[in-house]
């Protein structure tokens, strides 16, 4: 186990390094921050001076090392526009994004597992077809469109829920529902196929033959075995979930990091963009690492692979 953990840690570290390279190349080679930073009336000399101050006149590898050093010491530079430290700006917004991501994930699990299980139990019935259709339809539905619809129905027409902002738990409902739509179809189909497989296995048949109740069967036996793949998929889907926050935060003006990132991208505010990209990417790496370790702990076969 220790060997496996070390190996995975090293892997994660290499991935983080790769992420920093790609981010650096994308932002520092493709664009020239100095041009954007200088005041409009600046002369050519002013631009050159600024380039020297920012270290933009040095060779690329050196600049990359400086960039990497900045990441390691928590110095992500300052926003081109507000002049605030970029790390602080992003960290201020990260809790909102994580709150939304967890709520979306929770909602998706709470809906997907019962629906998927039921579909598996009542395989071939109208119920099964209905949920499958829901899953397929959900996958084809553009989430931004869904978000707009939810606002019109629940906020404007019914006046049940607030449209945007993050002042109360009620504010979380519509964004979480929109975000959950990213995961729901996948999790529902996964639960269904896992349950079908497990319900077909001998020990379940035996238990059933012994007269164990259906509820007990599902909760005590089947789900217990189904949740290893579910955890794996949730871990792998974490990136998709964070991607979904971009859509969701835009539609609901949710004050999170993704919203900040979209504005920074539009303004070409590179320090903020790179901070968001790197922090989110690193958090995905960490989540993937943790899921792998959890799964490895639960399922000894994985470690031997």
């Amino acid at each position: 186990m220790t060997g496996y953990v070390l190996q995975r840690l090293l892997q994660a570290l290499l991935v983080c390094l790769g992420i920093s390279v790609i981010t650096f190349v994308m932002l520092h080679v493709a664009g020239d921050p100095a041009q954007l930073l200088v005041p409009m009336e600046a002369s050519r000399e002013d631009v050159e001076l600024l380039r020297r101050q920012l270290g933009l006149d040095r060779p690329l590898p050196v600049r990359y090392l400086i960039f990497l050093g900045g990441i390691l010491t928590g110095n992500f530079g300052r926003s081109f526009f507000s002049q605030d430290p970029a790390l602080g700006l992003v960290l201020d917004r990260l809790p909102a994004t994580l709150e939304l991501a967890l709520a979306g994930l929770g909602l998706a699990l709470v809906v997907a597992i019962p629906l998927g299980s039921l579909a598996a139990l009542k395989r071939g019935t109208l119920w099964d077809r209905g949920t499958t259709a829901l899953a397929v339809g959900g996958q084809a539905m553009p989430a931004f469109w869904l978000g707009l619809m939810l606002i019109i129905v629940f906020s404007v027409k019914l006046r049940l829920l607030p449209v945007s902002g993050r002042d109360s738990p009620a504010h979380l409902v519509l964004p979480a529902a929109t975000l959950a739509s990213f995961l729901l179809p996948v999790l529902m189909r996964l639960t269904r196929s896992q349950m079908i497989e497990i319900l077909g296995q001998d020990y379940i048949r035996t238990a059933r033959a012994k007269g164990v109740g259906m509820a007990a069967l599902i909760f005590r036996h089947a789900l217990r075995n189904a949740w290893i793949p579910i955890v794996t998929v949730v871990g792998l889907q974490f990136g998709r979930l964070l991607g979904g926050t971009i859509v969701t935060e835009t539609v609901f003006a949710w004050p999170g990091a993704a919203n900040l990132a979209v504005r920074a991208i539009r303004n070409l505010d590179y320090p903020v963009v790179q901070t968001v990209v790197i922090l989110l990417a690193f958090s995905i790496v960490v989540v993937n690492l943790l899921t792998d370790l959890v799964v490895a702990r639960l399922d000894p076969r994985v470690r031997l692979q």
Partner: peptide
């Protein structure tokens, strides 16, 4: 669009 929805929903 979100602003208008907010105004109409009393937000």
């Amino acid at each position: 669009a979100t602003q208008i929805a907010e105004l109409l929903s009393g937000g």
